[in-house]
Computed example of a mutant assay.
Amino acid sequence: MSKVTSSAPSQRMLRVGEQVRAAITQVLQRGEVRDDLLEKTVISVSEVRMSPDLKMATAYVTPLGVADHEGVIAALNRNAKFIRGRIGGQLRQMKYMPEVRFRDDTSFDNYRKIDALLRSPEVRRDLEEPDASTDDKPE
């Protein structure tokens, strides 16, 4: 009997990911990480994706008000082991503490591009033109 695999995350992966996201957010809010760059940066943790075996957590973060996202991401990855240790106290129900890695969340940039596209004159023009195929014909 073969096991059916799916690319969608399981409910357990989603639940654990949300718990890890909340724990990372608390560690960053309290300023427990001693890094000059991280101490003066506000960081939004938008999502944490868990691997199927729950041993790897990929945290998607957005540094707010900072032009150099790469530097902040590198600082978070340098301190990943410390952060993993700090979130361990909040996730005691887990058999294994997941290894944490940080990635830049580019979804806000994608939303901004889509918004700019939808507000472009070409799209506005297409929305304002009456559609020739739906003429008001009496029935």
Rank of each mutant, 00 (worst) to 15 (best):
M1R: 07
S2I: 07
S2F: 09
S2L: 07
K3L: 13
V4F: 07
V4W: 05
V4Y: 08
V4E: 14
S6Q: 08
S6Y: 11
S7W: 07
P9C: 08
S10H: 01
M13D: 14
L14K: 15
V16G: 13
G17R: 09
E18Q: 14
Q19A: 12
V20W: 00
A22Q: 15
A22M: 09
A22D: 10
A22P: 00
A23R: 04
I24F: 00
T25N: 00
T25I: 01
T25D: 00
Q26A: 10
V27I: 12
Q29G: 01
R30Q: 14
G31V: 13
G31F: 10
E32A: 06
E32M: 12
R34C: 05
R34P: 00
D35C: 08
L37N: 09
L38T: 03
E39V: 11
E39M: 14
K40M: 11
K40E: 12
V42I: 15
V42W: 13
I43S: 02
S44T: 13
V45W: 02
V45Y: 01
V45Q: 01
V48F: 04
V48S: 03
M50L: 12
S51L: 10
S51M: 10
D53M: 11
D53Q: 09
L54M: 11
L54P: 05
K55I: 05
M56A: 08
A57M: 04
A57Q: 03
A57K: 03
T58M: 02
T58R: 09
T62P: 00
T62V: 12
T62C: 02
L64I: 15
L64P: 03
L64Q: 05
G65H: 06
G65Q: 04
V66P: 02
V66T: 12
A67M: 01
H69L: 01
E70D: 15
G71D: 15
G71V: 04
G71W: 04
I73R: 10
A74V: 07
A74D: 15
L76G: 07
L76V: 05
L76P: 06
R78Q: 13
R78M: 06
R78A: 10
R78Y: 05
N79Y: 00
K81L: 12
K81V: 14
F82I: 09
F82Y: 12
I83N: 07
R84N: 09
R84Q: 15
R86G: 00
I87D: 02
I87W: 04
I87S: 03
G88A: 08
G88D: 11
G89C: 08
G89M: 06
Q90W: 01
Q90I: 01
Q90F: 11
Q90N: 03
Q90V: 00
R92P: 02
R92A: 13
Q93S: 12
M94Y: 08
M94W: 08
Y96S: 09
Y96V: 13
P98D: 08
F102I: 00
R103D: 04
D105H: 04
S107C: 02
F108T: 09
R112W: 05
K113E: 14
I114M: 10
A116N: 09
A116I: 04
L118V: 07
E122N: 08
R125M: 03
D126P: 00
D126C: 01
L127S: 03
L127H: 03
L127F: 03
E128P: 00
E129H: 10
D131T: 05
A132H: 07
T134D: 07
T134L: 12
D135C: 04
D136T: 10
D136I: 14
K137S: 10
P138N: 12
E139K: 06
E139A: 11
